[in-house]
Amino acid sequence: MEEKTTKINPGKNTKIENIKETKEIVIEPVTRLEGHAKIDIFLNDEGNVENAYFQVVELRGFEQFCKGRPVEEMPRIVPRICGVCPGAHFVASSKAVDAVFNVDPPEPAKKLRELYYCGHYLHSHIAHFYALGAPDFIVGPSAPPMERNIIGVINKVGVEIGRKVIEARAQAQKIQEIIGGRATHSINFLPGGIAKGITDEEQKEIEGMAKNLVEFGKFSLQIFEDVVLKNKEYVDLITGDVYQHRTNYMGLVDDNNKINFYEGKVRVVSPDGKEILKFEGKDYLEHIAEHVEPWSYLKFPYLKKIGWKGFVDGLDSGIYRVAPLARLNVADGMATPI
């Protein structure tokens, strides 16, 4: 029997005619993420998955070409790592520069930086919720691939809601522009502070946009409640064992173990929610190491305390997750009420 490789383009309907003759399924490119990647799925003789590989096939090289450059250039270089979350790299690199210069920004500068990052957080997560995640849940996992995109979302929820999404994201972007000097690749943070404050008029403008964004957040939660959580098919998909991994989680918390986005301590909890580690960001390398594989440019960080045990989950695994779910799982609650 001839063995076949089936290549799937995510933007088209690709039908596998005879799964038992297929030994490899290649999904390339992987869409809805920043950077170039592909997925290789290898099947056994019965047509079941034997191995699957998520491969990052593009060399970025930031760690290498940053060497030898003045450290104060880092906040202007590393935001180019990602077109979705440049603000996170801008803030992190600016804080690293503070540490190199051994300076602590004054309180007004810290608050402006944190406000900037809150704007970025909203801007980035609106993009993820509506453009990257919503196509699968709002349009539906059974919808044709060419319909599972932002246009499909707007067609499903209506043009008026689509307009709200665009307006909210623009407001969050505007907050970054006012404080950061530029909306995307910001320039306004300096070692030990910030180059320019905000005027009274800008403060009022930001306050008005922030209030609108809080209401938009409540609106988005209601959409999630109505469209996703009230759909049994989706809930079964989310809570089933197919998409579950029991991993450790990592995120920033304040002194009360409440969620923090700008500073605080890094907290790591087990799959059962028990605290494993809590450390300052400057001590990262004492607790985190990186594993590499020959088939991907992606690095695989793990907890030194547990060690690299391979691509396994559970209590004995050193693998951990970050981002929104992890932030919630490592914290005892939110620092502010809705």
Results as ranks from 00 to 15, higher is better:
Gly192Asp: 13
Ile154Glu: 07
Ile166Arg: 04
Ile238Met: 11
Pro145Val: 01
Glu202His: 04
Ile223Val: 11
Glu160Phe: 12
Glu207Pro: 00
Gly180Asn: 11
Ile198Met: 07
Ala210Thr: 15
Phe137Thr: 06
Asp236Trp: 00
Val153Phe: 03
Leu190Thr: 15
Gln176Arg: 13
Tyr243Glu: 06
Leu237Ala: 02
Arg169Ser: 05
Ile223Met: 15
Ile198Trp: 07
Lys230Ile: 03
Val159Gly: 04
Asn231Ile: 01
Lys232Cys: 01
Glu201Gln: 08
Leu237Met: 08
Ile166Pro: 01
Ala131Ile: 08
Gly240Asp: 12
Ile206Asp: 08
Ile166Met: 10
Phe219Tyr: 13
Pro144Ser: 03
Ile194Lys: 12
Ser142Glu: 15
Thr239Gln: 12
Gly152Thr: 04
Ala172Pro: 08
Val242Ile: 13
Ile238Gln: 02
Ile206Trp: 03
His185Ser: 06
Ile150Glu: 07
Gln176Glu: 15
Gly240Ile: 03
Ile223His: 05
Asn149Gly: 01
Gln203Gly: 09
Ala183Ser: 15
Glu215Met: 12
Val228His: 00
Arg163Tyr: 12
Val165Asp: 06
Leu132Glu: 05
Asp136Thr: 03
Leu237Tyr: 04
Asn212Trp: 00
Lys204Asp: 07
Ile187Lys: 12
Val242Arg: 14
Ser142Lys: 14
Phe189Met: 14
Val227Lys: 15
Glu207Ser: 14
Leu221Glu: 15
Ser220Lys: 07
Asn231Val: 00
Ile175Trp: 10
Arg169Val: 04
Pro141Glu: 03
Val228Leu: 02
Gly192Leu: 11
Ile223Thr: 02
His245Asn: 15
Arg163Gln: 14
Ile238Tyr: 04
Arg148Phe: 00
Lys156Ala: 10
Glu207Asp: 14
Tyr243Asn: 14
Tyr249His: 15
Asp241Trp: 09
Val227Gln: 09
Val157Glu: 10
Lys211Val: 07
Ile166Cys: 02
Gly197Lys: 08
Ser186Asp: 10
Gln176Lys: 13
Asp200Leu: 04
Gly208Leu: 05
Leu190Gln: 14
Lys196Thr: 12
Asn212Val: 00
Leu237Pro: 00
Lys156Asp: 06
Glu202Thr: 04
Ile187Cys: 09
Ala131Thr: 05
Val159Gln: 14
Lys230Thr: 11
Tyr234Pro: 00
Gln171Phe: 10
Ile179Asp: 11
Tyr243Arg: 06
Asn149Met: 04
Ile175Lys: 10
Glu215Gly: 05
Lys196Asn: 13
Asn248Val: 08
Val228Glu: 00
Ala134Arg: 03
Glu177Arg: 10
Tyr234Ala: 09
Lys230Arg: 13
Asp200Glu: 15
Ser220Ile: 03
